[in-house]
């Protein structure tokens, strides 16, 4: 049982980290750029919000299968086989939780507006300097929301994992799958422990985030 908890924390932590690294430049680009196809990219990023996890799971499974182009390429050149591995779950989670991280950061960047950045430019701050020392600090609350939502959403992932995970203890048997397994095999004591823990943990996470947001709202 602790194995499933640790594995889930590892998956959610790693996914959040990758999403913050990938999501920040993406969110910045979405908030600044005015090219006509920006809305297309924006819609693609938001897609996992409305897509059934089974659709995502199905296409991921096909794409990752070593018998298809992408999976064969990974296997031939890097020796990586993604279906039913932890790495495969990380890839799936990154796609699945993408909008939950990109959207809050993008909103925060948009809220910063052009003013502070133009002021910084008049003071001869380079574009990178403006981004790192002006935009990023001002958008800090957005990053907090993004990290918490990305983390929590990955913790609760089920449908995608059911399809591309394969229920391997210590590798792909995350919390939600462990609970499902316990319920189906009538081991309800264990199911209660994990579910109760998730309920309490999720509540505390969201509650803490709201408190911090409230406080930082006063600060800025």
């Amino acid at each position: 049982m602790t194995g499933a908890i640790l594995l889930t924390l590892k998956l959610a932590g790693l996914t959040t980290l990758i999403l913050l690294l990938v999501g920040t430049p993406l969110a910045w680009w979405l908030s600044r750029n005015r090219v006509w196809w920006k809305d297309l990219i924006s819609a693609v990023v938001a897609l996992p919000l409305v897509l059934p996890p089974t659709v995502l799971g199905f296409y991921l499974l096909l794409a990752m299968s070593p018998q298809n182009a992408f999976g064969a390429f990974l296997k031939a050149h890097f020796g990586i086989v993604l279906p039913f591995t932890f790495e495969g779950l990380v890839l799936g989670s990154v796609i699945y939780s993408l909008p939950f991280v990109v959207q809050p950061i993008r909103n925060a960047f948009e809220a910063v507006g052009r003013g502070p950045l133009e002021v910084a430019a008049t003071l001869r701050a380079s574009p990178l300097d403006r981004f790192l020392t002006v935009a990023l600090p001002l958008a800090r609350p957005g990053f907090l929301t993004a990290a918490v939502l990305g983390f929590a959403h990955t913790m609760g992932e089920f449908g995608v994992v059911l399809m591309i995970g394969g229920n391997l203890p210590g590798e792909t048997k995350v919390l939600s799958i462990a609970i499902y397994d316990y319920v189906e095999s009538l081991e309800w004591t264990q199911a209660h422990i994990l579910s109760g823990g998730m309920l309490l943990g999720s509540f505390l996470l969201i509650f803490t985030m709201m408190l911090i947001e409230k406080r930082s709202g006063r600060l800025y």
Partner: peptide
């Protein structure tokens, strides 16, 4: 034991091999 992928039921298990994922 440690490497066998577990399907939710025998239909999913078959699907895993059918799709070439295992």
């Amino acid at each position: 034991e440690t490497t066998a992928v577990r399907g939710d039921n025998i239909a999913q298990t078959y699907q895993m091999a059918y799709s070439g994922a295992v």
